[in-house]
């Protein structure tokens, strides 16, 4: 039951996102571009930090050998 409820919540969120995307895409293409672009910039910045952790860990491992 809990899984089904969670499924319904996620389904509702997905429908809302699709509706917003369709409306923004049709009438506010630059707003939509901002939304998508901002998410991309945040995620790439975050991924860069995670990559730095990995690079440092590899450096330490290389130094250890």
């Amino acid at each position: 039951m809990a899984t089904f409820a969670r499924f319904l919540v996620y389904l509702f969120i997905a429908v809302c996102v699709i509706v917003i995307a369709v409306i923004l895409g049709a009438y506010g293409s630059w707003y939509f571009a901002w939304l998508v672009g901002t998410v991309m910039m945040v995620l790439i910045a975050a991924a860069g930090a995670a990559l730095l952790d990995t690079q440092e860990a590899e450096e330490r491992r290389g130094g250890g050998h």
């Binding site: 630059w30 672009g37 910039m41 910045a45 975050a46 991924a47 860069g48 930090a49 730095l52």
Partner: peptide, 24 residues
Amino acid sequence: RRSFRMAALFGVLATAGVITLGDA
């Protein structure tokens, strides 16, 4: 180091976006 990395990636994409939007 971490702040600089994140700022650099965030900034390069943002600057490209600003220039594109400036044209628009």
